[in-house]
Design a protein around this nucleic acid. Sequence first.
DNA 1: CGACTTGTTGATGTACATCAAGGTACGTGG
DNA 2: CCACGTACCTTGATGTACATCAACAAGTCG
Lengths: 252, 252
Amino acid sequence: MVTAACPSPARQVPCGKCPLRAEPSLRDFSQDELDFIAGFKSGELTAEAGTTLLMQGTASAHLYTVLSGWAVRHKTLPDGRRQILNFVLPADFIGLQGTVLGEMQHSVEALSDMVLCVFPRERLWELYRGHPSLAFDLTWIASREEQMLGEQLVSVGRRNALERIAFVLLHLFLRAEQVRMTSENKVEFPFTQQHLADALGMSLVHTNKTLRRLMASKAARWKNRTFEVLDREALTALAGYQMKDRQPRPFI
Amino acid sequence: MVTAACPSPARQVPCGKCPLRAEPSLRDFSQDELDFIAGFKSGELTAEAGTTLLMQGTASAHLYTVLSGWAVRHKTLPDGRRQILNFVLPADFIGLQGTVLGEMQHSVEALSDMVLCVFPRERLWELYRGHPSLAFDLTWIASREEQMLGEQLVSVGRRNALERIAFVLLHLFLRAEQVRMTSENKVEFPFTQQHLADALGMSLVHTNKTLRRLMASKAARWKNRTFEVLDREALTALAGYQMKDRQPRPFI
DNA sequence: CGACTTGTTGATGTACATCAAGGTACGTGG
DNA sequence: CCACGTACCTTGATGTACATCAACAAGTCG
């Protein structure tokens, strides 16, 4: 399932040429920061769709930055009920939450094949000690994650089914757009209606019916894994509004 | 509503004698950290119940640590629907989220009279540059906040009304216990059923009915603002389980 | 060998009956 | 007056059941 990438440096992307660096939505690093990150990085990880990268209740020795692919962060109750907290896209950082209790309170599962950048958690301290700007970025990242959860909590707590669906779909589309995974207002979503249902706190059946209602509005289309925004204003209106994300944002 | 405390140092608690320092659930500071914090602190703020300390959509020049009193962090939709994200207790840090977009994405409102420690946001950078241990604490705090939101999201998304109510009430009780606001398994909650409803994503009427069912189970009692845990195991069982919090935890 | 059936599986679509939660209304009590 | 309590009816969401559809593997036949 999980395969460590070929250790030969030739196969690994050097941080200086990291594809994410080209993203205009992500902040630039100084040479000094870049040198540190290059030394901090311990390798790359290739994971197949379906792999559990981090498991609720366990400690992980690693932190990851997503280079490519999609994942979900989710929590499972003892009786099996499941809630997706958020989706994970390229440039997102995962594993930080394990710092709080020493173990993860949620799982992270790959939705598609992924490539991740691996950092050893035990050297996190060096980052804080030597690179306050990166330390600040980590706080920023944790805080952004909190904001997304807050927005999701409002959805699940106070919005009806149609608003919720419109909101997440638009939200995911905009996030994908930021890392240039869209073209012609289309993205390929590697997840199913069941995932959407688990993210929205709804049943599969009701998700399907509501999705059908959304399609009927002609604001968007979702067929064969491809999501297309047909009328961005209409979709934003159905969603109520939409979060903005500051650009450029840090990513480590 | 908001009154800056008397600027005379005699009226302000010196950080070395901060009442929170005595809490065994909070981590100890080194003398060096303490000196920095004492210099970082710009004053104290006394706020009456009902005061809006931070307002969704605005930037705040200050960060706060709660010395005493209760507050809520909440978001309001354009049409007035409201969702409480979390409750704020002594030793909690607020305002950090404003870093992400430059402005707060939620409001913070005092539920009781409060005393807060004030820090100037513009000097936050000095903390990161000179005190990595405190920088780490801030990331930790942001991450803990995220965890609490995640837990709440599971509640609202996947638990039924009775479980939700049992979960928050027990959760708040345990948090209060950690900062010694309880005695004989009782706490004084300064909020109403409407607050609970807004936190749980439920209507007031349904909250009331469910609360009544919870009381009927004899696991807990809530009358005249006083909440009492009668059977902790039973309450934990109704809640499904309960989050743990690492002790000692940082607080700044 | 290739083309065609068949069976399987996972995702999606739809029709009920049922139920948990919402909304309105109108009590009480401090 | 505001918080709480409760009755009544309505509705949005659930659960079960079953149909459809595409992808895929195995086997069959020309």
